[in-house]
């Protein structure tokens, strides 16, 4: 109880941040425009009341996300860039052997999507796993492993500033409906649904912390509470644990269905990865 309080109290006293600063400072600063500019440039009508979690956090954290030399997620992007070029698996192929980095622009902003020869959607991490299995003949990366998150962060980084754009694929509709049903279903010992907090009570304070609208605009995110980069799945599991519900297994389609629903709900909002969140 005291632990979570002190974390939310002083999010910037991260030893990580200081440790990573020199390494991050060496990064070529390729991203000059701040997220604030991306927000201003996005086509948002006046009636659109959607808010990214970015808008609900303090100025210090916003600055941390916007500044590539301070955003801890950029360390993972940098690692992902190295992995991207490194041959892997029995095929000894690198991601870069098939894809150009430029081809990755917009990809993360449209996942989850249904891959070729399949009838069910996968998320960005799932896509990376599929490429490893089918093209690289490499073993699966563990969920939430540093390598998987780093590759996802590197790919996601290529979509920063672009509007979230789920594919126009009718086959996604049943998954979107299932995701919405999960979102609205009360569950756990506390008998709460996602919608109760993130639709009905967004903007109010839960234990002093503003409840966001739960738009997945910045995944994978660097969450100060984790002191690590993490996926949307990990974030969803945190909420499930919070309401004392049984978390779905990592490979469960339920997460992807929720993700399909949430990305549709956030359609058109600017993509921020790697986001920073409290």
């Amino acid at each position: 109880m005291k632990v979570s309080r002190s974390k939310s109290q002083s999010p910037l006293t991260l030893p990580e941040r200081m440790r990573w600063r020199p390494a991050l400072a060496l990064l070529p600063v390729v991203f000059a425009a701040s997220f604030a500019m991306a927000q201003a440039g996005a086509d948002k009508s006046a009636s659109d009341t959607r808010r990214s979690g970015y808008q609900d956090m303090g100025a210090a954290l916003q600055k941390m996300q916007d500044d590539d030399t301070a955003n801890p997620g950029m360390l993972y992007v940098q690692l992902g860039e190295q992995l991207w070029a490194k041959p892997a698996g029995a095929a000894s192929k690198a991601c870069a052997d098939c894809h150009s980095v430029a081809d990755m622009k917009g990809v993360a902003a449209r996942y989850p999507a249904i891959p070729e020869n399949s009838d069910r959607p996968i998320d960005l991490e799932g896509r990376i796993q599929l490429c490893r299995a089918s093209h690289q003949q490499a073993e699966r990366l563990a969920p939430e492993s540093r390598d998987l998150l780093s590759l996802a962060a590197f790919v996601a980084r290529q979509s920063r500033g672009l509007p979230i754009a789920p594919p126009d694929d009718a086959r996604l509709a049943p998954f979107r409906s299932e995701g919405e049903a999960i979102y609205r279903r009360r569950q756990g010992q506390l008998n709460l649904s996602c919608a109760i907090c993130h639709d009905d009570n967004a903007g109010k304070k839960l234990a002093g912390v503003t409840i966001p609208q739960a738009h997945p605009t910045g995944y994978p995110i660097y969450r100060l509470e984790w002191q690590a980069l993490g996926s949307l799945k990990r974030r969803l599991r945190n909420c499930l644990v919070g309401i004392r519900a049984e978390a779905y297994p990592y490979e469960a389609v339920d997460y992807v269905a929720l993700e399909v629903f949430l990305m549709g709900r956030a359609k058109g909002m600017p993509f921020e990865a790697p986001g920073v969140r409290p």
């Binding site: 279903r185 569950q187 008998n191 109760i196 004392r244 519900a245």
Partner: peptide, 30 residues
Amino acid sequence: SRLNPDTIMPPYYRTTGLVRVARAFEGKTI
């Protein structure tokens, strides 16, 4: 919920009618 079925107040002394309760809390009241 006996007074307002839409309440967000968790039922502190109920173990039935709940969905997917985490194993550690199954069958237990809050």
